[in-house]
Amino acid sequence: MNHNPFHWGRPSDSTYGPYNQQIAHASNVNPMARQQQQSDFPTMHTQRPMMTGTSVLAIKYQDGIVIAADNMGSYGSLMKLDNVERLLKVGQDTIVGISGDLSDLQAIQRILNDLEIDESYDAGDDEDALAAGLKANHVHEYLTRIMYNRRSKMDPLWNACIVAGFDDEGKSFLKYVDLLGVAFASPTLATGFGAHLAIPLLRQRVDSEADVKKLTKADAIQLIKDCMKVLFYRDARSLDKYSMAVLSESDQKVEFHKDVKVEDMKWAFAKGIKGYGMPQL
């Protein structure tokens, strides 16, 4: 058998009409411009992220959640920005941590801002109603719809998000959603490189919901700090300055810490590393 598909023939013109050449000449150039010049490529949306943010980490502890993300904006391997806030507060007590494309992060930020404004219309002067209206589980569901919708248009928002907050019953809520619209919950969550480097460390302490009860707030904060340190050591796209939010179920409050620094690092070993970059003088 001849295995070259071009020799298999195609439906005969007499039966099916001539082949529509426009199919092969689909263009990503807009129709007006196309009249002058045809493109060889079909319509393309985002193929890869440009400016990016790296991992988001989150863990449940006995009375809430700790979530953290560093402040770096990378352009490929270039450390371009050191002041990017990737933990967004939505409504009264929900934190959305976002990794991946930063322009898409800003798009999500605007979408959530619009949602917040829309939500405030209903509540009038009732602050309690406002707080009760938009909980973390609602924000997560909404984000999931948006992410899935965009990926179904083959034009995804190139992000992985972690939503931390409280649900309708005031219980801790921690759930993930990414550019494919994939959503799942776990007592420990990490996006990007953190999923490889931090998750094993987090799971040493919290492997299931049962372990959550044993982890104190101080230990959870320390654990996240340790993981951020490991990530700064190992992930070349990370920064030693990050934001961390601590949510407590008992008082339904969110503490937001900015400009937290990675501490107690030892870089003596770095001298011994050979074979990368410019020769050390």
């Binding site: 209903d122 209206g133 909980k135 589980n137 609602h138 569901e141 909404y142 719809r145 309708d168």
Partner: peptide, 12 residues
């Protein structure tokens, strides 16, 4: 329910 996973508020 679909978009927010919450029941519609009565006022809305």
């Amino acid at each position: 329910k679909m978009v927010f996973n919450r029941p519609l508020s009565v006022s809305r």
